[in-house]
Write a protein that binds this DNA or RNA. Structure first.
Lengths: 203, 203, 203, 203
DNA sequence: AATGAATGAGTGTTCATTCAT
DNA sequence: GATGAATGAACACTCATTCAT
């Protein structure tokens, strides 16, 4: 058990690293096994196929992060605090293991569709928080999905910038600004349930 | 030339469609040639390799979009109008050819690094607009890169939601809300950490 | 077409030879390609898989032989002559290409089950001739299936003996004796529709 | 010893069953071990390799059957009775354990060559009986090898028909007919080519 | 320009076999 | 004797690429 666990962890870490460095298709099972320090065949004791490996790696981490996010948000008294906790949590998560985040980012397309219907993803968590805030009147009522998309995108893109070297400091250093920005996005202005036909927003 | 152009266009369209439907690695040159209605070998008259095809497709479209974005923004008098024009332009671009956008989204990782140092990407355009707005005092001075990331992310994620079916209407229907949200994000508040819910559009 | 045909024939012959020499499982696609003088990949232009190759080789030859057998039998006036023609035909077939026969013998188990329900096999041809002979009273009425089995087995086993070196001369040299033996088997004695409970056949 | 024996028997039975169901090449050591209820490695306490297992299984059963056949024949006073005893014995053997017979049938090619020069096979037993009958004048003198082949083939093919479902009743129900047919084959006629239907059992 | 048969390196995967426990 | 994780040499098969036509 001891050995088996450590072997699997070595596989996971090796795969994660290679997937991020070269991409999934460009990484062979041989590459992963070599970096993990095992023979190719041994990998199949832990995952039934390369596809399985990618899928398990993605889904387990992706859904675990959703739970983490939910846990952070649950204890908070106000929508603003909930958002703040989630943003901060995300930044910490990212700074602790940016490689994992990069992996999730890279492989999401093609894996997302395989999630079971009822799976609670990070997206669902954020959307629920946003929708609740609107229902309770803590925030102007708008299209909850669109609002959730914007908040998620704002934070995610910051992380992406970080990965591509467009942001110098650890993501945690931007957490305040990110949380504040998201709050402005969400809480600012008047209600305007989109899509609405009225226009002209120029002051 | 007429024939050649049309063949190339068929290749491009076939490749684009297949890449989005199945992913790049899962699409073979044979698949593309077949859908384009030519023999496998013929494809090599137009692209020297599969990698080349992906790269050409990505870079030309990606950089062309940057120019489009820049053009839209150039004529506008204020930062808010510039942002509005870009958001609206993006939505129109997306609704006209969402497949192309999905392609750009999917292949960006792995292609982004190949862009030449001085290339003007959509990201650069947005960043420049945001930075200029801050310099001119049209918007509170904050970290321009972070602000640009958030704005870009907010809009991009809305498009991603649209692709995954999380938003029902055409993206254009959300353009107002998107532009307004981005403006709130950019222009709202004074300090980085604003714990108070009140805000005013212009400082 | 010229080239393609010859390539396929080279593949068939190489596969046949190797299957007989080493067995199907012991023969790799590489072995076949090498003996056929082509690259491994080229084989897949002619057969979609190794299984397909074995199956095509077996079924085409097996069913073609059934037709040959049927043709030989058709022109004959009496049951004895029909049997004689078939036995003689089989021996000629064997002596012309014993390797093909050995192949059919070796791979039959596992391939036989894949034949479509209505396929006319050599076994069906012989059985039909035997049954017709019984119906017309040319031969005592017995269990047609059993009688067909015995006739087929008698000839087949002679061929098998030949393959294993237990018979020195060409099979054709035994054709008279084989045909006569089969005829004795079929035509001799009184009718005794088996399975019947009565016993004791000792004189 | 008790336990070991039973383990080995379980291995043998598992292997036999799987070989017949799927074929030898399609059956892995893991499959066998699993069905036998042991770990893969444990199998190597009983057989040094998969090849060994197949070989031991084949040769022991094949040669044991030869002895059985010989024993059955030995006590009989006449050639006809000897043949009858052997046919009957074969049918009983088949009905008692058709899986074993199917195994012998399937793997014979490729194993037969490994038998030592002097090994007494079922074929040798039958041939000896046939040859002796000819020498003693109990049966017309013909090519003993060919005659033996025909007799063996006739019975074997009936068994094969049974395996493939072409014969409905237990093989034992056909024993009379089989023995009679073989005897006609052997004892009937005078010359190799007997165009006349009349015959007498003993010359 | 186009064709499509051919190439051959490389992939994911299997599986007989070993060996530390 | 038994276990089962690990090995590593195959294997079937794919596919980007070439090239004679």
């Amino acid at each position: 058990m001891r050995d088996s666990t450590s072997t699997r962890e070595r596989i996971d870490r090796a795969a994660l690293g290679l997937f991020v460095e070269r991409g999934v298709a460009e990484t062979s099972i041989r590459d992963i096994a070599q970096r993990a320090g095992i023979a190719d065949g041994a990998l199949y004791r832990h995952y039934r196929s390369k596809d399985e490996l990618v899928w398990q790696l993605f889904s387990s981490r992706y859904l675990a992060f959703a739970e983490t996010l939910d846990g952070l948000q649950l204890g908070q008294p106000t929508a603003e605090r909930r958002l703040d906790a989630m943003v901060r949590g995300f930044c910490a998560f990212f700074d602790r293991d940016w490689e994992l985040f990069a992996f999730l980012l890279i492989v999401q397309h093609g894996q997302l569709a395989r999630l079971s219907e009822g799976a609670r993803t990070p997206v669902d968590i954020v959307r629920a928080v946003v929708a609740a805030a609107m229902e309770r009147g803590e925030v102007p009522a708008r299209d909850a999905d669109l609002a959730a998309a914007m908040v998620i995108g704002a934070v995610l893109q910051a992380a992406t910038f970080k990965i591509y070297g467009r942001l110098p400091a650890p993501l945690g250093d931007y957490a305040d600004e990110l949380a504040a920005g998201c709050w402005r996005l969400l809480a600012g202005g008047k209600a305007a349930h989109s899509p609405s036909p009225e226009r002209s927003r120029t002051p």
